[in-house]
Design a protein around this nucleic acid. Structure first.
Lengths: 347, 347
DNA sequence: TTGTATGCGTTATCAG
DNA sequence: CTGATAACGCATACAA
């Protein structure tokens, strides 16, 4: 017994109620009220109010090809980074009169393909993509069809699209420089398994390069699975071999979480063993003596993504642009070797 | 020089390419392939593939009134609770062939009204609403028009809609019982300012009732602003007057964060002063000796919301339902008075 | 099994 | 300034 209801007033009904033509009503709501005589304008306004009329965006989209929808494909919606960026995207959308259709792939390439098709079927006018796998063909097809695309954080070399994200080499430089300045000489770079994710690869490689450039710096790189004991084992082993003045550099928020757990399990005080993470998290100031981080300007990244989309919507012939932001250092107790307990202010 | 492109193949083009009629192509994609002869079926399949055809959901929605879109209005998208619920909503949507249109109000009643109108204009078939203010009229109007509605977490007495959320009185009972069992006798209930939010009011009131019911229990309620020093002042004052066996009960995740900061600033070890928060957060296991929480079954709540929507979509005449879930207790060190340091396993 | 004709709510193109 | 009328891409009675 399906009772599909949701009766909405239509343009035609308003026109009848106001004793006007569809065209005039369309003009009224299409931002051309100036072209209507004051009398007509008022009649339409009142009729619409009486009927509770709201233009049907679906119908609008069909006619003009303008859905007023932007799409965002997120690899992991539970990642605080994604959320923060999404907040920026959403704000920028609103400011420009667009709505946001969000799809989450949970890092599953199959779902990624499905959702990409889905977003396309809703005729989104632009797409912010945080790829999970390598949907190169699908994305290139969409780009070829003229759909503005911006790759967020992770990029695919084969796809011609704008890229917005963090300046990863610079971030690694900032991290290494900070740790050295603080007196740490043995660095362990911890990453999630690299896979296809370009930021992980970039950070991983840059760290290697720094090692090669500076003989006085000792370092190792590891990418253990985050579940289970692997991280703890890796850290224990590293500390056993290098002794004092060792520090951990965590390639992202998830790693920072795992590394913090590992250090706590090992009973090692933060700071005595350095800990610096890429990505700022709510709780980094709360775990004594505070965890140092490199924060990404997530809000700005999200807004930039939308701006790129709009620019390309305005002129599809632009060459692909790449906008990279520097990270911001939040130095806290976890990268302070000395005077560990002389200060309660971890924030 | 606007270069609006995005040429998509249409049903008609596929029909021509396959030398078939629009109807047949429509059937092919409308899930009636069985009704087509194998030959036709294959011709259409190939033609569609060649042209890269994808059905236009916009057009589909216009014709059948089925946009296949569900809407979700979130009060604060940066709140981990909202995200977790949203994840559940999104999954359930996908499983049932719907997409999710998300709107964030940033707790601004004005934006709330705007976004409600917006979602309506996209003809979402159902709406999950986490209200910020009291858009009673708007919501009731939408409900009257036959739009399935479910209120998430916060509810409005005046609106006839399904409600999905936490069993708040039960949660407070669990919290109080746990704290007493652990030996805490002086309880401070900390909330954000109550405002219109029904969960805050329910928790606040239930705590009062427990106080009234049990003369041997001492307690106070406070709702200081979360920014600045207010929380710290309130806590310091309470501890000064009650001395030992005092515990803080935090009404939500934000309060837990603020209370943790306050206790750290005051130099009070967690556990010695109890701390129990409603809402589970990533870092609760990381702050020594672990912060006890009452976790909400966020995933289930999100899925339930969608199920309610679908049920009502199927039969609009159902009376409003209310589905409340019990919280789950994560007991950690922050509610352990004795043997504070005998165990490193905080998780 | 297949095709024809009509309409969904809106905007755009023309005339008046 | 105002109004007919034709698309937009698709689904669906209805007909063959």
């Amino acid at each position: 017994m399906s009772v599909r209801a949701s009766r909405h007033a239509t343009l035609l009904e308003v026109a009848r109620e106001a004793d006007a033509s569809k065209t005039s009503v369309s003009r009224y709501f299409g931002g051309e009220r100036e072209r209507l005589s004051p009398a007509l304008r008022q009649r339409i306004g009142e009729a619409a109010r009486r009927l509770g009329y709201r233009p049907n965006q679906i119908a609008r989209g069909l006619k003009g090809g303008r859905s007023r929808l932007l799409g965002m494909l997120v690899a992991d919606i539970r990642n605080p980074y994604s959320i923060a960026v999404m907040h920026g995207v959403e704000q920028a959308c609103r400011e420009h009169g667009y709505s946001l259709l969000v799809a989450n792939t949970d890092n599953d390439p199959a779902q990624e393909r499905t959702h990409l098709a889905l977003l396309a079927s809703y005729r989104v006018e632009g797409l912010v993509v945080n790829v999970a796998g390598s949907p190169t063909r699908e994305l290139q097809d969409m780009a070829d069809q003229g759909l503005p695309l911006v790759l967020l954080d992770r990029w695919l070399a084969e796809v011609e699209a704008d890229v917005v994200g963090l300046d990863n080499p610079l971030a690694i430089d900032m991290a290494v420089d900070h740790l050295r300045r603080q007196g740490y000489r043995n660095l362990l770079f911890l990453s999630e398994p690299l896979g296809q994710a370009s930021p992980r690869q970039q950070r991983w490689q840059r760290f290697e390069q720094r090692l090669a450039d500076e003989p006085t710096l000792y370092g190792e790189r590891r990418a253990p699975p985050l579940g289970g004991e692997a991280v703890e084992d890796v850290v224990r082993d590293f500390l056993a071999r290098t002794g004092r003045s060792a520090a951990l550099l965590c390639a992202n928020g998830n790693v920072t979480l795992a590394a913090t757990r590992a250090l706590q399990a090992l009973g090692v005080p933060l700071g005595e063993v350095g800990l610096l993470g890429i990505d700022e998290l709510d709780w980094c100031g709360l775990v004594p003596p505070g965890i140092s981080t490199l924060a990404q300007p997530t809000e700005a990244i999200g807004r930039a993504a939308v701006q790129h989309l709009l620019a390309r919507l305005d002129d599809a012939t632009q060459p692909p642009r790449r906008t990279l932001y520097p990270a911001r250092l939040n130095a806290r107790g976890s990268t302070r070797l000395e005077g560990l307990n002389d200060n309660k202010e971890w924030q």
